[in-house]
């Protein structure tokens, strides 16, 4: 028997496999197609204080090795999330999994205060909070919160003061070096890190000579970003003792095990579920098989376990 339990900064997960925010709705949409018993946590789609309409269409484009999206964070506001989404998720996911599957709320905002307010209102209705800091800070001319370690620290600290839940900060990949961002999160009281968010990307329709996405550009996810993510997880792990939830192009167990060996405590499946909702279960089972083959009795032994 392989022990699949992991602890992500206070979030107890029965398996090291989660879903990535924005690719799994509010956690109930894939019931019937995804084996919830194999999930350690579900990350819901991003929410802020008020409902948000998102971008114009088209919002996505398939590219070799991935997907470029500019959904624009369309989603529900925190009040509706608490009154409708969370109770519905709790009931439905427990019924399909045969146990409760922890729910991570992914939050974003236009200001530091908004993050803190959303976290405060969430209370203890969810099991952890993930901060999406890859959205524009309205008050500072639209730079994203995650681009400046000082601003990042402000958001993390303000949210830390507003919640006692495990606090996961989701880092953007498009920085020259990840270490200062990792340090900023750790100093400001984060319990865990998640990486990577999508990579800024653009596709042009050469016949019409216009960008394909209505938003002009978007974020690249999927298979093609996996090696980029492995490097960032590896670098982040070297820079901190915070546990890491790794994501970016996990399509099979090999991808997931790479992340664990690079330093992750758990992994999240995102884009892969769109083409194959069976990936979650295959990743889980493949990690267990790997542990058996290599004589590990616990998945936690894989974290950062590179032979060097």
């Amino acid at each position: 028997m392989v022990n699949t339990k992991v602890n992500l900064g206070g979030l107890e997960m029965a398996t090291p496999v989660a879903t990535a925010s924005g690719t799994f709705g509010y956690g109930t949409e894939y019931i019937g197609a995804v084996d919830y018993a194999k999930l350690g946590a579900v990350t819901a789609k991003g929410i802020r204080l008020e409902p948000w309409p998102g971008n114009a269409m088209p919002r996505h484009c398939e590219v070799p090795g991935g997907l470029v999206n500019a959904i624009g964070l369309q989603g529900t506001g925190v009040e509706q999330f608490l009154s409708i989404t969370v109770p519905w998720y709790r009931e439905e996911s427990a019924a399909t999994a045969g146990r409760s599957v922890p729910l991570i709320a992914n939050i974003w905002g236009g200001s530091v205060d908004e993050y803190a307010e959303v976290a405060r209102r969430l209370g203890d209705a969810v099991d952890a909070i993930e901060l999406n800091v890859s959205c524009p800070n309205v008050k500072s001319g639209g730079h994203t919160f995650g681009q400046d370690p000082a601003v990042l620290a402000q958001v993390v600290r303000a949210t830390r003061d507003a919640t006692r839940l495990p606090l996961i900060v989701k880092l953007a990949p498009n920085v020259p070096s990840i270490a200062p961002y990792v340090a900023a999160c750790e100093d400001a009281g984060a319990d865990a890190l998640s990486l990577i968010n999508t990579i800024p990307a653009m596709v042009i329709d050469i016949e019409r000579r216009v960008p394909v996405l209505a938003n002009r550009s978007g974020g690249l996810s999927g298979q093609g970003i996996h090696p980029v993510a492995v490097k960032l997880v590896h670098d982040a792990h070297r820079a901190t003792r915070l546990p890491i939830l790794a994501m970016g192009g996990v399509f099979d167990a090999r991808d997931a095990i790479e992340f664990l060996l690079a330093g992750a405590t758990a992994v999240a499946v995102g884009t892969a579920t769109f083409s194959d909702p069976g990936v979650v279960a295959a990743v889980h089972d493949g990690i267990v098989d790997y542990c058996i083959r290599h004589g590990f009795s616990s998945v936690t032994e894989l974290t950062g376990n590179l032979a060097e």
Binding site: E29, G54, L67, I71, F274
Partner: peptide, 14 residues
């Protein structure tokens, strides 16, 4: 509408 997930999870198909 152009779709990604087809199940209501991604908000691509507005």
């Amino acid at each position: 509408r152009h779709m990604i997930c087809g199940v209501g999870a991604c908000y691509a198909c507005i």
